[in-house]
């Protein structure tokens, strides 16, 4: 059967949470996911901030709650979407065609491609890595440089691809500040002798318990936070990374050689998100999707039957994505009931 009440494009946290609710409302729901398994970017994280809750456990919890009303298609990239005159939706993938009464977009985000910030040498110098790659090391319980050394010094740089006029992303990605705090604590637990430096413009610890974790990282884990931008990174003779920065609190230039240089990459609209935003002309200035009205109709669009959830709209944390999935399911419930 290829007809559903709701099709959800994207099986990340927002899409999964919406599917749980819609399944519980007895709506026949289909999740179309382009990756091999559902979970979205959640599958790339080890523990979540600020409480170090296991990402895997969260994924298992979400998966367990999906009931028999929910079907899942993986490794299916959306090729086209059509909105028919009867307000029916048709989604085409390489393998088939699926229709529904309502369509929920939860196509998420991509990480900023750090190669675009040439001055940091990502993709050129092997010991310049992204926060995503560091998370993979933390997940494996082993943090080394490319040539297998145990790092003695690690530097983190915030706002790579966020709040950056040069790359066209003026917005804050919300997650990176607290993510660096979390990762630096995890790294220190794995490598007790490591020295860590975190370069920032300003630290945005706006979530519950974020400020406390930031304080803990300094007092207990001795992470040094330096206000200032790094201007360039270069490889040394022994494959370490020399970074140049300005300490904007002390108004002094600073040069530091570290073993690993971690770029805290921001969030950008995913390829699928961009495709949909162009297809239905609902793009905001950064390629994310624009909801109908931010305060009261943030899961709806100007197009009848088309709904949005999660980071396809803007950067969000995982708890907010989950709540947004809930809210989208409620909006769809109202729509289908009154249809």
């Amino acid at each position: 059967m290829n007809h559903f009440d709701v099709i959800i494009i994207g099986g990340g946290p927002a899409g999964m949470q919406a599917a749980i609710r819609l399944g519980n409302f007895n709506y026949k729901t289909l999740i179309i996911e382009k990756e091999k398994s559902i979970g979205g970017k959640l599958t790339q994280w080890d523990k979540l901030f600020p409480d170090f809750y296991s990402a895997e456990e969260l994924l298992q919890n979400l998966t367990r709650q999906l009931n028999e009303n929910v079907s899942i298609l993986t490794e299916q990239e959306v090729k086209d979407i059509e909105n028919t005159s009867e307000n029916e939706w048709t989604v085409k993938t390489a393998d088939g065609q699926y229709s529904s009464k309502a369509l929920l977009i939860a196509s998420g985000y991509d990480f900023f491609n750090a190669k675009r910030k040439e001055e940091f040498g990502y993709g050129i110098y092997p010991n310049v890595i992204t926060s995503v790659e560091l998370e993979a090391m933390i997940k494996n319980g082993k943090i080394t440089t490319l040539d297998g050394r145990i790092p003695q010094k690690i530097a983190y740089l915030q706002c790579v691809g966020s709040r950056d006029e040069k790359v066209g992303n003026h917005y804050c990605s919300i997650n990176c500040c607290i993510c660096a705090v979390k990762q630096s604590i995890e790294v220190k637990e794995l490598l007790p002798d490591v020295e860590q430096y975190c370069f920032y413009m300003d630290l945005r610890m706006a979530g519950q318990h974020y400020e406390e974790l930031y304080r803990t990282s300094q007092e207990k884990y001795h992470v040094q936070f330096i206000r200032g931008r790094i201007s360039e990174a270069a490889s040394t003779f022994d494959n370490r990374i020399q970074i140049k920065a300005e300490n904007t609190l002390l108004s002094t230039p600073l040069k530091l050689t570290v073993d690993l240089f971690v770029l805290m990459v921001g969030m950008e609209a995913s390829e699928t998100t961009r495709f949909i935003s162009q297809k239905f002309n609902i793009s905001n200035e950064y390629g994310f999707l624009q909801s109908k009205q931010r305060y009261c109709s943030d899961n709806e669009t100007e197009i009848k039957g088309l709904f949005l959830a999660g980071t396809c709209k803007r950067p969000m944390t995982i708890p907010k994505s989950l709540k947004d999935g809930d809210a989208a399911a409620n909006a769809i419930f109202d729509y289908l009931k009154n249809r």
Binding site: E118, E119, G121, I124, E232, A234, S235, T236, F237, Q242
Partner: peptide, 27 residues
């Protein structure tokens, strides 16, 4: 090649048989 890794001189060295050195204070 832009500002960070300009190729204008590196290209000459490589094309004419040499090896280009990258070093920390190159820029």
């Amino acid at each position: 090649g832009g500002a960070e890794f300009p190729y204008v001189l590196a290209g000459l060295i490589e094309s004419w048989g040499g090896e280009v050195i990258d070093y920390p204070e190159r820029r």
